[in-house]
Design a protein around this nucleic acid. Sequence first.
DNA 1: TTTGCCAACTTAAACGTTTAAGTAACGTCA
DNA 2: TGACGTTACTTAAACGTTTAAGTTGGCAAA
Lengths: 350, 350
Amino acid sequence: MRVTLKDIAREVGLSVTAVSRALNGHKDVSEATRARVLEAARRLNYYPNSIARGLVTQRSGTVGLFSVSFTQSYSIMSDPFAAELVDAILERFGETGYDVLWFSRSRIEKADSYVALAVQRQIDAAIFLGLRTDDHRFAELRTIGIPLVTVDVPIDVENAVCVGCDQVMGAYAAVSHLIEMGHRRIAYISGHWHAPVSHERREGYMKAMAEAGCPVRDEWIVEGDFSRASGKRSMERLLALDPRPTAVFCASDLMALGAMDAVRAHGLRVPDDVSIIGFDDIREAAEAQPPLTTVHQPRHLLGKAVADTVIEALREGGSWKGKGRILLEPKLVRRATVAPVRDGGASAAG
Amino acid sequence: MRVTLKDIAREVGLSVTAVSRALNGHKDVSEATRARVLEAARRLNYYPNSIARGLVTQRSGTVGLFSVSFTQSYSIMSDPFAAELVDAILERFGETGYDVLWFSRSRIEKADSYVALAVQRQIDAAIFLGLRTDDHRFAELRTIGIPLVTVDVPIDVENAVCVGCDQVMGAYAAVSHLIEMGHRRIAYISGHWHAPVSHERREGYMKAMAEAGCPVRDEWIVEGDFSRASGKRSMERLLALDPRPTAVFCASDLMALGAMDAVRAHGLRVPDDVSIIGFDDIREAAEAQPPLTTVHQPRHLLGKAVADTVIEALREGGSWKGKGRILLEPKLVRRATVAPVRDGGASAAG
DNA sequence: TTTGCCAACTTAAACGTTTAAGTAACGTCA
DNA sequence: TGACGTTACTTAAACGTTTAAGTTGGCAAA
């Protein structure tokens, strides 16, 4: 039923090898023969079987996309930043002919092994989204033996690259902006501490505060989990403080949106009473009321960088060594959730 | 380097066949032997090569997920409804051991053939998201020869099933609700007409209007493309009408959100001046200001139904015949964007 | 004792490719 | 003339599985 090289070979009266070589553009076939083969292939509706090819070449032509657990929430696509990033990665791969096998959280948990999935499916490279440093399968990655690209999680293996934005710089820019607006009591709603970005953004926050001579109080740093609900919860804790912070830097737009919910629920206003700044610049940030000031991460470039890194690794074959880290530049986007501080940040507030 | 059956066979002093049968649970191996094989497999870190297996069994153990073009917008994940649906599908598949090969829009466009991708990758079944009736590859689907599951696009082939909500019912419920609130001049902002759901929702709209004896004017039916921007554009056209509609039923939450933007931009208020109702109940609907009244589509059940249908087809093998259509029930979710009409819908308004 | 059967294996072929190695025909050059 | 190349092929093996068809030895039934 299925059309194979053998069918074409029979059709044009050649060996299977000759047909294979004609189709693959080798130069030891005459042009006349190649034309006949091509014609027959198209007439019979032949498409090469990548499974058979993979068996002999030892490369499947697929890359595995592991979406581990960006947030606490149900799964990865509920995080708009992840969704848009995935989008960009897939679009780029689509242009190349590599296909992407998607390993969802439940699949990963069922197999309980990255290596098992990688070996079984013979993927040529792996991309990790939402990898957590407390993942008990982390050590396994050392033995996986194929190019590895993680997003925002540096990992010290030779065949790995971490692609991401400069988180320290992004956070620094955000907090500096708040400081320029006169804020001094600035809080940081972080993502969970098992995400390296949470620490890096904290570092940028601390740096900006230190340079401005603003003391940082422990209770201004609250751990969320990147989700909107956690942003709201965290903001509630901050609003209970006396004096309360006049501005909050959130480690995700979702948390910033949640924080705005909390501010509103308290009968206060953004940015009049509290300035809020987010991170990511997801679609909803611009659409929020008021539009959210945030740190833009160039998702499309990130996705392209991820895909291009993988593609380069695949082309180079075994000789490829990871480049450590690829850092893109984030950019502050000023919208409407940051205002100059009203009381100079010196007096108490209730 | 790679551990194969041969390695295990050598290790335990058996033939490759015996090892294969032991691992696959055939009953013609002694329990003692099976135990030795299992032990060796685990000790050597053996994982079956699904490529080799696929070559002989003629089934790859993968299903193709084709995300064609839900909306006009860049790609599928920018549509929250699609993203959440995909999520549910992937999570369900993860529990089964089937793996999902994701064909993005660019991949589909590059190959320009569903059959080519299906045959090359030997996928066992295909899922179509965002298929449009004006897709020039539509006819191809007839010859694809594997189980086919589409979301919201009925397709008349024996090996296909369409999974989706009852769109007519959902639209009918939405418009009836508006009518109950006293509205009579009700507009419909549709998705593009190449999506069958646009027509089905229109049917529900017409049915509710007809039953209530409300005349429908041509200019009340506007074509968008499901995106927020198109919702805004469409609403602007409706606001220019005299008398303008007092309520609008939108074929997606995104368009409803866009419509709300337009209303606000006109200095009018939702729901005081215009009632708005959406479709889908994406996460942002509940979070909007004011929270959006909409028709909830049970994404999780939809995703599960899609996956379960595929899994069933795969288990049944060649004997499987599509069941035509699986219809789930949508449900109206009353939030805060619908209010009783102020002028009874009879007088003119500016 | 022979026959037959069963359990527990092994052998060999097959899946659809790619590729290393071989070959036949033909031309070229010394 | 013969050695050597080149061109355009073919042959055969391999990739790692599964599976149909044998094979062996032991045991029960006749």
